[in-house]
């Protein structure tokens, strides 16, 4: 292969890698954090996801929906409550509907439904129900939040540049004084990680506001990290299965490539080329 070929290949890869990285602009790049789920073998930290779910329930869920998730997702393979302690014994359930922890979480929520005589009712949730949306509709959500629309959090980590790092930095990014030339109106807050640096969401996390079930100290950073970990799982619930399968596929393809190359050399050894 000549030099031109190599140049072309290198340049093509460069453009492919560089293209999605664009879009950074008038805001600060988020602080990188060493997530356990990064890298080709990375996995979620179940404890962190469980704690993060607690933060979501007690803090975020007042305004932010999780509308593409059902309670049962928490108990599926790879989910935070895939294995749970029942009467001191670790249990796992092939069908998340049978998982008592999931059933208990679901039962804490009230779900709108229609009963068998056609009346609108509120009943306790079941594992198969989707997370209820905190507002009746977008207009109500905006009215309750000073005109801003709290985004749905189901896929928020995939829906933002820099993903988890961005969410975590944003949640912790309320400490600084705004620059003098930035006009911060009432009901808005300075946050250097938000595109435009002004955010309508007030700071939400304070040290000790959540009492973690596992006894971890609930600092602001701990809660921001945990809830981001939970949202990362919510955005990519099959990530661990994906990476496991990826490893097998890569090993297989590599082996097949070696065999085919040997076969190719053998075939072509018959002729001059």
């Amino acid at each position: 292969m000549n030099k031109l070929s190599k140049l072309l290949a290198v340049a093509a890869v460069t453009v492919m890698v560089a293209a999605p990285a664009i879009g950074a602009g008038y805001y600060r790049s988020p602080e990188p954090y060493d997530w356990s789920f990064e890298g080709p073998f990375g996995e979620y930290d179940r404890q962190a996801v469980q704690r993060g779910f607690q933060v979501y329930q007690q803090v975020c869920s007042a305004c932010h929906g999780l509308k593409h998730l059902a309670f049962r997702h928490l108990g599926q393979e790879g989910g935070p409550f895939e294995t749970v302690m029942v009467d001191g014994v670790e249990q796992s359930y092939a069908n998340p509907n049978d998982n008592p922890v999931i059933a208990a979480i679901a039962a804490e929520y009230l779900i709108s439904d229609i009963d068998d005589i056609g009346e609108t009712i509120e009943r306790p949730g079941r594992p198969s129900d989707m997370f209820p949306y905190p507002f009746a509709n977008e207009a109500q959500a905006r009215a309750a939040n000073g005109g801003a629309y709290p985004p749905d959090l189901s896929i928020i980590v995939r829906a933002r540049h820099y993903g988890a790092d961005y969410i975590r930095s944003l949640l912790m990014g309320y400490d600084e004084e705004p620059p003098a030339d930035l006009d911060i109106r009432a009901g808005s807050y300075y946050n250097p990680y938000m595109p435009g640096m002004v955010i309508a969401m007030a700071p939400q996390l304070w040290d000790g506001m959540v009492e973690y079930a596992d006894g971890t100290e609930a600092t602001t950073e701990q809660m921001a990290t945990d809830v981001t970990h939970f949202l990362a799982w919510a955005s990519n619930p099959h990530m661990e299965a994906r990476k496991r399968m990826g490893l097998m596929v890569m090993i297989y393809l590599f082996g097949l490539a070696v065999l085919l190359y040997a076969s190719y050399r053998k075939v072509w050894s018959r002729v001059k080329h």
Binding site: Y252, G255, L256, L259, L260, A262, S263, K266, V267
Partner: peptide, 11 residues
């Protein structure tokens, strides 16, 4: 020979 069969089999 073996190598072709192995490659085809694996594919």
């Amino acid at each position: 020979d073996f190598i072709h069969i192995a490659a085809a089999g694996m594919a």
